[in-house]
Simulated assay, not measured.
Amino acid sequence: MPAAAQAAAVRNGDVSAAELVGSHLDRIADVNPRVNAVTQLMAERAREAAARTDARRAAGAEPGPLAGVPFTVKETTAVEGVPTTMGAARFRDLVAEADAPPVARLRAAGAVPIGHSNVPTLILAGMHTRSELFGDTVNPWDPSRTPGGSSGGDGAAVATGMAALGLGNDSGGSVRIPASFC
């Protein structure tokens, strides 16, 4: 289901946020070993956020327009308490003290970060998503091809249903190219 339909299902009580997050975590476990798009899985944190969403909904509070929708976050974008590696070994322990504004906004809308996604090392490698820290992400439809661009991890994650949304960024095609390739 598209992200909007997933959120509507959670808001309407057709599915719990916990079930939605759980199904995406299962999908990551099944698919990610083949495509290597999700680099740092935030499973426990995602389950806790989903439980909070379900509790808000059960208490009659509005869970948000993106209630329970799992999203990946490009390795260049800060998620509080998680290393922002930029795909480089030297930044492996660079733990973010706060969410980047787009992550905070998605959380405020009820969405749930489920994992970081792969990027070229320091986003300098051009069209292929290969990092020294996490290796190659492959195109989910043809592993001999690139997922494209520096947001290739997000493109592959969304295309394969590992996440409903991917939070990439774009200045020269970094989101548009993976969206097209994947």
Rank of each mutant, 00 (worst) to 15 (best):
L20Y: 02
L20T: 05
V21S: 00
G22W: 07
G22H: 05
S23V: 06
S23D: 10
L25M: 08
R27S: 03
R27H: 05
I28S: 05
A29D: 12
D30C: 10
D30S: 15
N32E: 09
N32D: 14
P33C: 05
P33G: 06
R34V: 00
V35G: 04
V35P: 01
V35C: 01
V38L: 10
V38G: 11
V38A: 08
Q40V: 15
Q40P: 09
L41C: 12
M42P: 07
A43F: 10
R45Q: 07
R47G: 02
R47W: 00
E48R: 07
A49D: 06
A50S: 14
A50L: 14
A50R: 11
A51N: 01
R52A: 15
T53Y: 10
T53M: 06
T53V: 07
T53C: 13
T53A: 09
A55S: 12
R56T: 06
A58Y: 06
A58K: 03
A59S: 14
A59M: 07
A59N: 06
A61W: 00
A61F: 02
A61K: 00
A61G: 01
E62C: 09
E62W: 09
E62V: 06
P63A: 00
G64P: 04
G64N: 00
G64Y: 03
G64E: 02
L66Q: 10
A67R: 14
V69M: 06
P70G: 01
F71M: 07
F71C: 03
F71T: 02
F71A: 05
T72A: 03
T72Q: 05
K74E: 08
K74V: 04
E75F: 14
T76V: 11
T77L: 09
T77R: 09
T77N: 09
V79P: 12
E80Q: 07
V82P: 01
P83T: 00
P83A: 09
P83G: 03
T84F: 03
T85S: 06
T85E: 11
T85P: 05
M86N: 15
F91I: 01
R92Q: 11
A96Y: 05
A96C: 04
A96T: 03
E97Y: 08
A98W: 12
A98F: 15
A100T: 00
P101K: 01
V103R: 14
A104W: 14
A104Y: 13
R105D: 04
L106C: 02
L106F: 00
L106E: 06
R107T: 07
A108T: 05
G110T: 06
G110I: 03
G110H: 02
G110L: 05
A111W: 02
A111Q: 13
A111Y: 11
A111H: 13
V112L: 05
P113N: 13
I114R: 03
